[in-house]
Design a protein around this nucleic acid. Structure first.
Lengths: 204, 204
DNA sequence: AATGTCAATGACATAATGTCAACGAAATGA
DNA sequence: TCATTTCGTTGACATTATGTCATTGACATT
């Protein structure tokens, strides 16, 4: 049974911190694939085996780095919206899309690496899948409520419609992350995506 | 200057064919990542270096295998539709979606590997990007025509709308490829996707 | 002070890639 | 027919990365 943090414990924490920080730096510089454990431990100034004391492999190390951004996405995902009119829906949807895209753009460097990493590792892809499902769950619930309020036609299957809508957004998000010149057309994309969605569900 | 195929040439052709065939088999069995050159050449019964005579690396070898399926997708992509009424549009869209999904399902084993491979290789991703762009180009042109015929509101940006619509479809396609139990709900998905799209664009 | 614990280490075994000098059978031509 | 050239084929090699593990020694405990 341990009571207080010993110096040894602090030292260990510090080593882990150095590893994460160095990994972050190296991942941003070289991308996911090209980054090696050797580069990371060299930057951190620790021995090779040390990395494996704290992380099972490169993927787990990267997931530790992803966590911060992931958290931000979860927060956006949890913002439910409960419009009472079609006009309200339109405006709220537009805001949520804008937040989602801005979040990605503001974290562009790390999001680029995340994009790499998703392709390279089932483990990391599963991690992103969590975010995706969180969004889809939220949207599904939103559609259900809108249907109960007679704002949306009940012939729409909430789960499938939610997926469709989320996928549209995610693909554009990755595209914004990739490109470097999207400050001008971001708002246009937000408008068009929202128009598509609200035209389908909240008109008619 | 060569005139006729020498025996040597035929032998070389045969070696290349054996490599492609063996690679196909091994890729289906082990997926893209886990397949190694050693496994392929062992199955083909040729020497290690031989693989590198015909293919720069594993990726290029896989692209040779993808080509057949790619061709089929290009064919579906090139089917333009030019509806004169909203009802016609709805029915034609539904058919095209169904064809796209069926094509993927019928080639499920290799499409699973393609999905792996896209994540693992920029070269292969670029190859798939060609198909994607071909679809998007076609859809964009379709929307333009529908707008000229006053079937679709001109506030829709054809390029962005086309991308949104295509992305929706592609994501569901990959999902159908992944899962094994989609014979029952395929038609439901087709209905819902088409409903989403036609509700947004062709209703008013 | 003696003993136990555990963070840290780097050499090793393993595995995959891409290259290349050399082999030898087929093609050429005299 | 035989000598010479061409070129498809080969596997050993150098290279590079991964994950493991026995060992070490500084720190904690008694």
């Amino acid at each position: 049974m341990k009571k207080h943090l010993t110096n040894r414990d602090k030292q260990a924490q510090e080593t882990k911190r150095k590893l994460i920080e160095s990994a972050h730096q190296v991942f941003l510089q070289n991308g996911f694939e090209k980054t090696t454990i050797s580069q990371i431990i060299k930057t951190a100034g620790v021995g090779y085996g040390t990395a494996y004391v704290y992380f099972k492999n490169k993927h787990e190390l990267f997931i530790a780095i992803m966590e911060e951004v992931m958290q931000q996405f979860f927060e956006v995902a949890h913002q439910k919206f409960r419009p009472d009119t079609a006009a309200e829906a339109s405006s709220q949807i537009k805001n949520q899309v804008r937040e989602y895209m801005n979040l990605a753009i503001q974290n562009r460097p790390i999001m680029k690496v995340v994009n790499d990493a998703i392709g390279s590792s089932d483990r990391i892809e599963a991690e992103w899948e969590n975010i995706r499902n969180e969004f889809i769950r939220g949207i599904t619930s939103d559609i259900n409520h809108s249907q109960e309020k007679q704002l949306v036609n009940t012939e729409f299957d909430p789960a499938i419609t939610a997926k469709s809508w989320y996928y549209m957004n995610e693909m554009f998000m990755w595209q914004l992350v990739d490109a470097d010149d999207n400050h001008d057309n971001l708002e246009h994309i937000v408008e068009q995506l929202s128009l598509f969605y609200t035209s389908a569900l909240y008109n008619g």
